[in-house]
Write a protein that binds this DNA or RNA. Structure first.
Length: 110
DNA sequence: CTCTTGACGCCGG
DNA sequence: TCCGGCGCCAAGA
């Protein structure tokens, strides 16, 4: 009841994913594979699965493909948010400049 | 226990 | 630059 869209019970790995994604500063992004590596487990697919099921309460639009493209089924939503937050985008604004927008991690300064 | 699926990533054409 | 195929790992049926 506190959270909507949450199906079933999240695994511990899923909770770690949500926690890290919630810490990503506005205007910055992480790739699914980046999140998996920072948590030190599973793989990019597990991160995507966690966000697909429990990502309703976190800025999931800050987690994208390694090449800077948004997740299927939410391209328009993600692009709109990037524009709002001033995320570094390509000239056409269709994808994120990973090299510039990639968040260093929870320890790195903003 | 086995098979299929999936908000991915990388390489080759 | 775009498209397709293969590899990885865990959850679900």
């Amino acid at each position: 009841m506190s959270e909507a869209g949450q199906r079933g019970v999240p695994t511990e790995f899923a909770e770690q994913v949500l926690d890290l994604v919630a810490r990503i500063p506005a205007g910055r992004v992480l790739a699914y594979g980046d999140v998996a590596r920072m948590l030190g487990g599973g793989g990019p697919r597990q991160v995507g699965a966690a966000l697909a099921r429990f990502g309703a309460g976190v800025p999931w639009h800050r987690v994208i493909h390694a090449d800077g493209t948004p997740p299927p089924g939410h391209e328009a939503q993600a692009r709109a948010r990037w524009r709002e937050e001033g995320t570094p985008l390509t000239a056409d604004g269709s994808r994120v400049r990973m090299h510039a927008a990639r968040w260093a991690g929870p320890q790195a300064p903003s």
